[in-house]
Amino acid sequence: MKKVIILCFLVNFCNAQFTIVPLEQYGSERKDKYFKDVNNILEDYAGIWRWHDGNGRELFIYLYKQEGVNQKTLGGDAYKRDVIVGYYIYKENNIELLNTRIKLIENFNSISFSVAVGGIGMTPTKPISQHEPTSMFFRDFSRIVCFHDQLKPAMGTACEFVSVSNNLAAVALCTNGLIMNTCGVQEVVPNFPRNIGLGIERISTVAPPLD
């Protein structure tokens, strides 16, 4: 009985750490708040999005809503938010050259530092119908950077996701900024459509389960 009481106390204490606030109210005051998608605005971002160049290159972006992700401000204040996480598959002439699904699966329970652990992530706070730009965080697994024996996908400043309609958006998968290497850069997929504007269409509102 004593253990149960203590456990209940701990659970209550933990829950009491974060006050639930609608995601749309995300702002500068975030300490101990949970910005929850109470109005399901993230559902409109989730699903499968496709880009193609009409010449054999295809990109599929699989996006999922992830709830209660632990985050911290630059000042160290803890908060939670609902986010969009995802992975991508790149094909040329119907041959799959890149698939980052496993990255998302492997890191799904540890998403906090970066929502783009699977290659793609977003933190929108406005309904897609408002066409507000939101950063599309991206890890470029088509370009592996070797830095002091660490092999990492290229990373940098993100570009934007801007919805044109509920099922059409313009994005750019960017790793802007300075990318250093000490032991080379491997172009895994040279023709990957990075750092250019892409029009993506939502071909499904639901992405396949991650197992």
């Binding site: 160049d53 994005v171 892409l198």
Partner: peptide
């Protein structure tokens, strides 16, 4: 930006 190989322009920068 491009979709299906066709250049498109819209007012929000990406």
């Amino acid at each position: 930006w491009m979709i299906g190989g066709i250049p498109v322009t819209q007012p929000q920068p990406i």
